[in-house]
Design a protein around this nucleic acid. Structure first.
Lengths: 199, 199
DNA sequence: CCTACCGATCGGTAGG
DNA sequence: CCTACCGATCGGTAGG
């Protein structure tokens, strides 16, 4: 048996990864409701019952796509190892990185808006995601204050809501303007006005 | 013929208005792709071909819904009669008003995200809407600068992108958090940090 | 992983 | 404004 014809786990894992990549792209282009399992499956070169062999329902596929992105981004942000201004810097770096990944930006912008409906399958996911994002950011601002890096009139809780909202709103403008918005630059200007240190 | 049984233009106009109201609500709840003409028609007490008598296609209905909201909001913002800091105040007042109109906030948040796809029927509409919103806001900041109300390190073009992005991002957080976000308060805090005058 | 199928629903049209 | 219908497409299942 040559490596090329080898079957089993390795092949199954590769197929799963391909499905997740194609699903991420189509959920971003068309939203969860607008995307169809048949189109995703066709892009992977399989039938749609074939896709359902790997992910039992459309909802399970969406949650798997979101979860995979979270694993990657959580590793990048690593809230346990960065603190204060350093954490804010990571957020602007993430915006810069996202400007190279239109598919991911589309996915989160479109599905987050859909998921504001309480009966959307990803509603609980995004509720939790926003709560933890704002909380982590508030902690970073509070640490910046401890380090004497924050202007005294900047409130950490308000600043955290502002920064997360700004990132989301800039993504919409960036997508609508066909990538003509400098997301990271606008974010840095906002944060610079809140700090007493170089940024 | 009593007024109650009167037919004609007045009745047609009332029916159109009812359709636009129900369409706005459902487009906001489910998005454009997720909303169906049958559900909208049923909520108006008519059949879906009956609805298509008033609006020839689903796309025409969406554009009519968006256009009606623009007429109302443009009258409120009236860029020709407010300038500088006064215009920024109007924007925060609009956020306060929107906190009483969940349907409208849902409509614009959900459909704007959908419309980032170039083939979405409202893509051109939102492209134009963002361009003019940012341009009007930039003008307001520039006027504030002329009036000596702007901190010297605040750039009008960047500040305009920030403010529009902030409004959009806060609407998503407000919807996801079930109206627990103080949109107007967070906006005012942001603007206050950019001005040299009371706000 | 496939073919073949299910019931449901879609936007839009025919004809009145 | 209605009933009745069109072809297309949906998520999911049966059975292999």
């Amino acid at each position: 048996m040559t490596p090329e014809t080898r079957r089993g786990y390795a092949k199954g894992r590769a197929r799963r990864t391909e499905i997740l990549d194609q699903a991420m792209a189509l959920f971003g282009e068309a939203g969860y409701r607008g995307a169809s399992l048949r189109v995703i499956a066709t892009r992977c070169g399989i039938s749609h019952p074939g896709l359902l062999h790997h992910f039992p329902t459309k909802e399970a596929l969406l949650l798997a796509v979101l979860q995979r992105r979270d694993d990657v981004d959580d590793a990048w942000l690593a809230p346990s190892v960065t603190r204060g201004v350093e954490h804010l810097r990571r957020l602007t770096d993430l915006a810069e990185l996202n400007a190279q990944r239109r598919g991911i930006v589309e996915l989160f912008s479109v599905v987050a808006a859909e998921a504001t409906s309480p009966d959307h399958p990803a509603h609980a996911y995004f509720e939790n995601r926003y709560r933890t994002s704002v909380a982590n950011t508030e902690r970073a601002y509070a640490e910046a204050r401890e380090d004497g890096a924050l202007r005294p009139d900047t409130d950490p809780a308000t600043a955290a809501q502002q920064l997360i909202a700004l990132m989301d709103g800039l993504q919409i403008q960036w997508l609508i303007s066909d990538c003509a918005t400098d997301m990271a630059g606008v974010l840095r200007a906002h944060i610079r006005a809140q700090l007493t240190v170089e940024f």
